[in-house]
C-alpha cells in the first residue's frame, strides 16, 4: 500500500469509528427507557448497541494500525500507548490515545462482566460518557481535515444525535424502567 492509501484509510476509519460510537452512545442512553426508540424490540436495540460498538472497535484498530505503519504519519507506538506524549499536536493526539484506552477498559469489563458483577461493570461503563466527547474532540483537533466542511458537518451531526438522545432521556415522555423505587430505607416502626 502506498502512503497515500494508508493516509486515507487512517482518516476514513477514524471518522467511521466516531460515527459508530455516536450510534452506540445514543442507543445506550435510549436503552434505559421503558419504550424503545422507533418501537424496536428491546433485544434488537441491545444487539445493535453491542454490534455497533464492536464494529467501532474494529475501525478504531484499523485507524491506529494504518497510522502507525504509515511512514509519513508522525506517530509512534509510544504515542499510541502513553497519551499526550506525541510531538505532533500532543494534546489533540493524546485525546485519541486516551479515548482508545477508555474504550479498551469498557470492552474488557464487558467481556468479563458476568465475572465482574453488575455493579463494577456499570461503573466502568459510565466511562463511555467521557470516552465519546474525547473521541469527538480528537477528531476535530488532530485531523488534518479539520478545515473541511464535511468533517465539521459529521461532527455536528454526531453531537446532535447524542444531544437528541439526552434530551429524550430527560424529557417527561421518557418512560423510566417499570420498577425502581430505590430500596426503601428501613425506618424503625416501633
Amino acid at each position: 500500500m502506498t502512503s497515500d492509501a494508508l493516509w486515507f484509510v487512517g482518516r476514513g476509519s477514524g471518522v467511521i469509528s466516531l460515527v459508530l460510537l455516536t450510534v452506540v452512545v445514543a442507543l445506550g442512553i435510549g436503552a434505559r427507557s421503558g419504550r424503545t426508540p422507533f418501537d424496536l424490540p428491546r433485544f434488537a436495540v441491545n444487539l445493535l448497541h453491542r454490534n455497533a460498538a464492536l464494529t467501532a472497535i474494529v475501525f478504531l484498530a484499523a485507524h491506529i494500525i494504518s497510522l502507525l505503519i504509515d511512514p509519513l504519519a508522525p506517530i509512534t507506538i509510544f504515542d499510541a500507548i502513553f497519551p499526550f506524549s506525541s510531538t505532533y499536536r500532543p494534546f489533540w493526539q493524546g485525546l485519541g490515545t486516551l479515548g482508545m484506552e477508555l474504550m479498551a477498559a469498557i470492552l474488557l469489563t464487558t467481556l468479563f462482566r458476568h465475572r465482574l458483577g453488575a455493579r463494577g461493570w456499570r461503573a466502568v461503563h459510565w466511562l463511555a460518557y467521557l470516552c465519546w466527547p474525547v473521541a469527538l474532540a480528537h477528531g476535530l483537533g488532530t485531523g488534518s481535515d479539520n478545515n473541511t466542511w464535511w468533517l465539521w458537518a459529521i461532527t455536528m451531526i454526531c453531537l446532535a444525535a447524542v444531544a437528541a438522545a439526552v434530551f429524550w432521556r430527560v424529557s417527561p415522555r421518557f418512560d423510566p424502567p417499570r420498577r425502581r423505587v430505590a430500596v426503601r430505607p428501613f425506618e424503625e416502626v416501633r
Partner: peptide, 11 residues
C-alpha cells in the same frame, strides 16, 4: 414491609 427489591412483590 416489602423491602422493595423484587418487582412482583413491590408492585
Amino acid at each position: 414491609q416489602v423491602s422493595g427489591q423484587c418487582g412482583p412483590c413491590l408492585n
